[in-house]
Design a binder for these strands. Structure first.
Lengths: 237, 237
DNA sequence: TGTGGCGCAATTGTATGCAATCAACTATAC
DNA sequence: GTATAGTTGATTGCATACAATTGCGCCACA
């Protein structure tokens, strides 16, 4: 395998960068994403930017309106609820699968991740949000089904986006304890309990977030994107 | 509304055309899809073809390999099972929603669709397959959640693709009776029964198909795509 | 005859240019 | 003063041109 093989392709890198920026609330819902300026930032032509935007649009993270350009998606409250409901339903499957596959190694991975979450508990808000999302994605990975992983990832990201719209700060803190309980149930192989805990956890996350109804302000374009673009320009991952 | 407003955009038309071609088994799994020849067929440049291919790849209907071009996806048996399992889980939600929304109008729509299925029972194979898939999509529409619709559609299509790989001919026939039963349960508002029927139905469809294990032959490029391309060139939907 | 390398043809990856569309602004008429 | 039409600037839609990569076939050589 050549070294150039790990640098997947620039479109992937750009999509990932933008996705991270959105999930870490650097690009807030409603912000406009003009192809030209993004291309300039990332040091590539509009072609690649277009591809990335199109991909993110397919994932539901941005909206793409004909001749009017892209903007970070602003899911409605109803959509947000639908997303969480769907997610809950799908993660039932994840639970079953993980329990079927459970080994000491898997348990160790889960606990290692939990440790990272604990460590980051008082660090920056975006980081703990990211780790919380990645806990669910790790579970989906351990479920051993690429299909499942694909959809859990996508819907998880979309839920993350809605949280940045509707959640108030520090609404994620108490999630860690819930993650711990889920891991314990998984370790014991208690499927029903794990499922119940997961459902409760997701409902709780949604509820903590989705009952404030503030309407988003106007839409500014942010230079804070710079660090993400830099990584891509420098050929990072 | 202008006349040009219904012609969504060419990329959409091309994606739809290709999707239909795949689902109707005109483009079989494993077939290569070179950008140039497709562009020529559809009368557009590679730019639009690329976009369409990229979109279908995101939906999981084609695979896109770096510098090697696109081909119709060839899901593994395991992937196929995962897809059906996921689908089953998600359609639970559809059932609940449809029952919540149930009105005489909705019931009428469902029965109208069933009538179409009955009518096409002895027509061409692709047509009855398409109608069977569309029954589930209609249900998702009636569930009233765009999010749900999006994923049921996508996963339904992917299941349709796997059926073209693994199913033997005429394996869909007995599905109509099952659809009828589901409608009846929905009409009565009997959620548990409807859910059970749907689960049983999907399992049956999968089982009828997924236990033959023939390995697909070599991969030829087919001119049979022509009618699909023509529609797009002529500006049709 | 088998194997390794080299170059060519085919196909994809990316950038750029031009046309089409949309939004905002201005000027003019009522 | 308001409303409407014309115009301009910015942004996207699409095609084309060029660069990079891959795979195959050919030839040299053992």
């Amino acid at each position: 395998m050549k070294a150039s093989d790990k640098v997947k392709h620039r479109t992937d890198m750009i999509s990932s960068a933008l996705r991270s920026a959105i999930l870490e609330r650097v690009l807030m819902p409603g912000m406009k994403l003009p192809e030209d300026s993004l291309g300039e930032r990332f040091g590539v032509s509009r072609t690649l930017i277009r591809q990335s935007l199109e991909r993110l649009a397919a994932e539901g993270l941005i909206e793409l309106r004909r001749n009017k350009g892209a903007m970070v998606a602003k899911p409605s409250l109803e959509e947000a609820r639908d997303l969480f409901e769907l997610r809950t339903q799908i993660e039932d499957l994840v639970i079953s699968r993980v329990i079927k596959n459970m080994t000491p190694d898997i348990l160790a991975e889960l606990e290692a991740h939990l440790a990272k979450e604990v460590e980051a508990e008082h660090a920056s808000e975006p980081k703990s949000i990211r780790l919380a999302t990645e806990f669910h994605i790790l579970l989906a990975k351990l479920a051993g089904s690429p299909v499942l992983l694909r959809y859990v990832e996508e819907i998880g990201y979309r839920c993350g986006l809605t949280l940045s719209l509707y959640a108030r700060p520090h609404s994620t803190d108490c999630g860690i304890q819930e993650h711990r309980q889920i891991i314990e149930a998984l370790a014991k192989g208690d499927e029903d309990v794990a499922r119940q805990l997961m459902r409760h956890h997701l409902t709780a996350v949604a509820d903590r977030a989705l009952f404030t109804t503030e309407e988003g302000g106007p839409l500014l374009y942010l230079d804070a994107l710079e660090p993400y673009a830099k990584k891509v320009r420098d050929g990072g991952a």
